[in-house]
Design a protein around this nucleic acid. Structure first.
Lengths: 122, 122
DNA sequence: CAGTATCCTATCGGATACTG
DNA sequence: CAGTATCCGATAGGATACTG
C-alpha cells in the first residue's frame, strides 16, 4: 500500500510541524470541541469557549479556515450573521482533540495532586 | 456510576483548563511522542525533538514533571547522566498526543493545499 | 452582530556564556 | 553532560475604541 513522502513532526523542517503547531494548541482544541455540535455563530462561540477574546477567536478561526478545517458562512443580513462549522477534514480532528480535552478533565485531580507534591517538596 | 465534580475545559475558571494548556502544546506533544519509546537522556531528547533549544526542553520537562507526567532519574556519575521517562499517568497521554502528531503527518498535504487556496484567492 | 484597529503587557523562545 | 543565567527579539493575547 503506497504512501506519499513520509512526513515526521519530529523533524524541524518538516511541513507537518507547522500543522502540529496549529492543532496542538489550547484555543484550537476548545474551538474544535465547541464546533463539534454543529454550526455556530461567532457570538455563541465566544460564550461557549468561555473567556476567549474576540481577537483570539477571530485569529483562531481564520487560521483554522486557512488550513481547511473550518468553513465560514456569511449571511447578508442586518444585523450580520456569520456561522462557522467544521469541514470534513476538520471533523477528523475532533476525536483526537476531544480526547485531549477529556484527558484534562478526567485527570485534573491527579495533576493537581502532582503539582502539590512537586511544589511542596522544595 | 458516580463521578467526581464535573470538570469542563470550556469553562474559563475550571482547573482542567490549566492542564489542557500544558498538554495541548506542540513541544509537549513532541516530547511525549519522543519519550514513548522509553527512557531517554536529555541530550538524546534534544536530538530526537529536532530544533528544540536546551531552554525550552528544560522548561517543558520541568512542567511535565510537575504535572506528574514525566519522571526524572539522576545518576551521580561524571559526566552526569539524567534520564527522563513517562510516568504511568504520562503514558495515558501518549495515545491522544501520538494521534495528533499522526494527524499532522497524514493530512499535511491537504492542509498545504488549503493554505494555497486560501492565500491565493485574495 | 461581527468583526477590525490600536496599544500594550506577558510569555515564548532563541543565542550565548558559564557551572557542577 | 546537563543543565542554569542572562539578554533580547518575536509572538501571544488582553483591553478598549471604533465600523459596516
Amino acid at each position: 500500500m503506497p504512501q506519499g513522502p513520509d512526513f515526521n513532526v519530529l523533524t524541524a523542517t518538516c511541513p507537518s510541524r507547522t500543522s502540529l503547531a496549529r492543532i496542538a494548541n489550547k484555543w484550537t482544541a476548545m474551538v474544535v470541541i465547541a464546533l463539534s455540535g454543529g454550526r455556530m455563530r461567532f457570538r455563541d462561540l465566544r460564550t461557549t469557549v468561555d473567556g476567549i477574546s474576540a481577537k483570539v477567536l477571530t485569529e483562531t478561526l481564520r487560521d483554522l479556515e486557512r488550513d481547511g478545517l473550518v468553513a465560514r458562512h456569511v449571511y447578508a443580513e442586518m444585523p450580520p450573521r456569520v456561522e462557522y462549522e467544521l469541514t470534513p477534514l476538520g471533523r477528523t480532528l475532533h476525536t483526537p482533540l476531544q480526547a485531549l480535552g477529556r484527558w484534562a478533565e478526567e485527570h485534573i485531580t491527579e495533576v493537581l495532586a502532582a503539582r502539590e507534591t512537586y511544589d511542596g517538596r522544595r
